[in-house]
């Protein structure tokens, strides 16, 4: 009986402790973002939403948000156009290439950002190609692991080669077969991959900051600059980031669970 009750409360206690550990900093950041002053006291001196107004009124806030959005959308487009056909080809027609892609997709994990930036500066620093373009391509490559894994999973299970060829035998062109047959059936995996890519690109800091030496101020760079001048406004931005990523996570969970439901049916 005693052992049974320990079995019951111990896991709950562990989960509660983990939740406190994870949510504690976020809650503290939120309280800091709505505090008037919180320096030498246990609790804030008072509460206010004025820092939200200060942040949104800052002339650098909207441009940096737009820059982050442009960067993220560009990376999503490049990732989709460059990697989707390759991953499709590797999964459907060339399993050998799939093996190589798998190793290639691990590379971004093994190269630290600072090393990557040094290499990029050495390689492309002197050639007349817009650095923003190189940045977009680099972040796309960094997003490859998440994108590859999401799509790779989507290609498992169904006979995509058969479906792609069948659509052509039914009179469709290769492009038509890809759009009408392949894309709808990898929709969930593709959406997950693109959202993860978007989130990675939107929150990227190290490469963007060092490679473009702060000339292209994204929301993340703006946030770090803000931290040196106004801690409360920086915490407001952190909360906005958290909400934004929370929304993306929620959409991902929805997509994955809807895919599971349709598989069950």
């Amino acid at each position: 009986m005693k052992a049974h009750s320990v079995d019951k409360w111990l896991p709950r206690l562990i989960i509660i402790l983990i939740a406190i550990f994870l949510l504690g900093p976020i809650v503290a950041t939120f309280i800091y973002s709505i505090s008037t002053v919180w320096v030498k006291t246990i609790l804030p001196s008072g509460l206010t939403f004025k820092w939200y107004g200060v942040l949104t009124a800052d002339p650098d806030f909207i441009p940096s948000t737009l820059r982050s959005l442009i960067l993220a959308v560009a990376v999503v487009l490049v990732t989709m156009l460059a990697f989707l056909p390759v991953i499709f080809y590797a999964n459907v027609y060339n399993p050998n290439l799939k093996e190589k892609l798998r190793y290639l997709s691990i590379l971004p994990y093994s190269i630290p950002g600072i090393v990557l930036v040094t290499g990029l500066v050495q390689l492309y620093g002197s050639i007349p190609v817009p650095k923003l373009l190189i940045l977009i391509l680099t972040i796309s490559a960094i997003c490859l692991p998440a994108f590859y894994q999401s799509l790779n999973n989507a290609f498992m299970g169904d006979d995509f080669r058969g479906m792609f060829e069948q659509a052509q035998l039914l009179g469709d062109s290769k492009l038509g077969a890809f759009i009408r047959v392949v894309l709808p059936n990898i929709r969930a995996g593709l959406m997950v991959g693109l959202l993860l890519t978007f989130a990675t690109a939107f929150t990227e800091y190290v490469i963007t900051n060092i490679f473009l030496t702060g000339q292209y101020e994204t929301l993340k760079i703006y946030m770090y600059r803000l931290m040196n001048t106004n801690g409360n406004a920086a915490s407001v931005l952190t909360i906005i980031f958290f909400i934004f990523l929370g929304i993306i996570a929620f959409i991902l969970i929805k997509i994955v669970s809807s895919q599971k439901r349709s598989t069950k049916e």
């Binding site: 060829e165 035998l169 469709d172 059936n185």
Partner: peptide, 16 residues
């Protein structure tokens, strides 16, 4: 393949 007017049934059926 889309110009031959040949139908084919795959082992997996390849239904969409």
């Amino acid at each position: 393949p889309n110009q031959r007017n040949i139908g084919m049934i795959f082992q997996s059926y390849a239904l969409f």
